[in-house]
Design a binder for these strands. Structure first.
Lengths: 248, 248
DNA sequence: ATATTTTATTTGTCTGACATTTAAAAGTCT
DNA sequence: AGACTTTTAAATGTCAGACAAATAAAATAT
């Protein structure tokens, strides 16, 4: 592992990259201990604070974990699906908000991916997944629910659907798409009528998944996609109208 | 923004989290300048090195960028699709290798997601996407190609297919699934015969996308999924056989 | 008016020190 | 001998102060 002191990049960034490469290329394996900070400083010919900044960069990506005390140190971290989930969710969320991704684009992506999971979920869902879906449907039908709570339940329903596919890689990929949509969904005010429609579609989806009927699940998801988009259009139109009348 | 000096977590981790929350919740907006390191150290009642470690954590996640000099400092970074791509690819790749995700699981996820893109790609693909796909098909047919180069071309082909959907969110989500599969695909030795089959299926996919025929594209993708899995099975079987005979 | 130099500010890096945590090793008691 | 306690060494976490390097604004010179 070498670094170039004449490069324009920060030393700590170079060191972090060098160690990251070693991990990605398998030269450092899970749970292997890195040299101590003092030894790394020696190897790279930099000071300990610089090494520490590099290690913090890696820790922020869950690539290493550190432990204090004798026989402590920095260890190559086995990145868990949970770590990867949360990373993906924050990245996706910021990506959508900062790049002003349109509701339609995000919505299309989300439901396209979800439809990819539905046939597998119809095959493999367990009673647990069905129970979660049914429970969320009940919650969504309760009166007096805030829009935020309704949205959160919506996310939980769809995550159960996705998890039903029994493929952790799919669940991981979908986590970003589904959760990152939530802030956008929160902009919608759900009337009693629209909640009724959504609960109806959720019920059809749950029924189809329970009956292992992939085609029906897909059809209901398509309808849900369309309905979500028209719902957003009408909410936007209503707001525009309210703004116009207020300005006169 | 407050931190708890009695918490078990590192001060730098707490500070990073506090600033991250401010960004995610929109209290700090894109291109806004954070206070200087000295001011932050003052605010949080810690030393400058500690603040710096916190900032490096954020920089590692592309949440901020720093600039030296007068009127420099740390600025909230607009996370780009490119940033998000590369983060997702390394995370996905490590997730697969460290958690010993089976070839079948990763493969299933990848093709399920890709099939989700195909109908959209059939609708919206530009001549550019088609040209890329055709060019990669030609490359894949050339003799004397190493397995690695063949795999890389395979990835390029499928990325063009995905990008054809014209939905950057989908492209971003798929980048992880497609690229992270590459190390697993690299374990396969592609015989002349198997390359011929794959090129044939790729041609059918490109033809279908060109003809805006979503159903045919889907059918070809399903065949490709099945074929990839049987290919991997036969490679594994051949290796097992070789091991057995060598041991006798 | 333009070009150059100066200056102030800020990040990047280094040195050295002390605090805190932790597990192994040594010691003590029953 | 075995169980408990104390000591110790090694490592990360934190701090203070200093200097280097970059950079843009301000001041100066042409």
């Amino acid at each position: 592992m070498k670094i170039d002191p004449n490069s324009s990049a920060d030393l700590s960034a170079q060191i972090a990259q060098a160690i990251k490469n070693a991990i990605v290329e398998g030269r450092l394996i899970v749970d292997e201990r890195l040299p101590s900070e003092a030894e790394l400083a020696d190897q790279f010919q930099v000071s300990r604070p610089t090494v520490r900044e590099a290690l913090k960069r890696l820790a922020a990506q869950s690539l290493i974990r550190t432990q204090r005390g004798a026989f402590g140190g920095a260890f190559v971290n086995k990145i868990s699906f949970k770590d990867a989930y949360s990373q993906q969710i924050t990245t996706s969320t910021l990506l959508l908000s900062m790049n002003a991704v349109s509701f339609d684009t995000a919505c299309e992506a989300r439901y396209a991916l979800e439809r990819a999971c539905a046939p597998l979920s119809a095959q493999r869902r367990t009673p647990d997944h069905l129970a979660t879906m049914r429970a969320e449907i009940v919650r969504q039908g309760q009166p007096g629910l805030s829009d935020e709570t309704f949205c959160a339940s919506d996310v939980a329903f769809h995550r159960a659907l996705v998890d039903g596919a029994g493929n952790p890689v799919l669940s991981y990929q979908l986590a970003g798409a589904v959760e990152a949509m939530q802030p956008l969904m929160n902009m919608i005010t759900f009337t009693a009528r629209s909640r009724e429609v959504i609960v109806g579609l959720h019920t059809r989806i749950a029924d189809a998944i329970e009956a292992r009927d992939a085609a029906s699940a897909d059809a209901a998801l398509v309808e849900l996609t369309t309905y979500t988009m028209t719902l957003k259009d009408s909410v936007m139109a209503a707001r525009a109208a309210a703004r116009n009348s207020a300005h006169r």
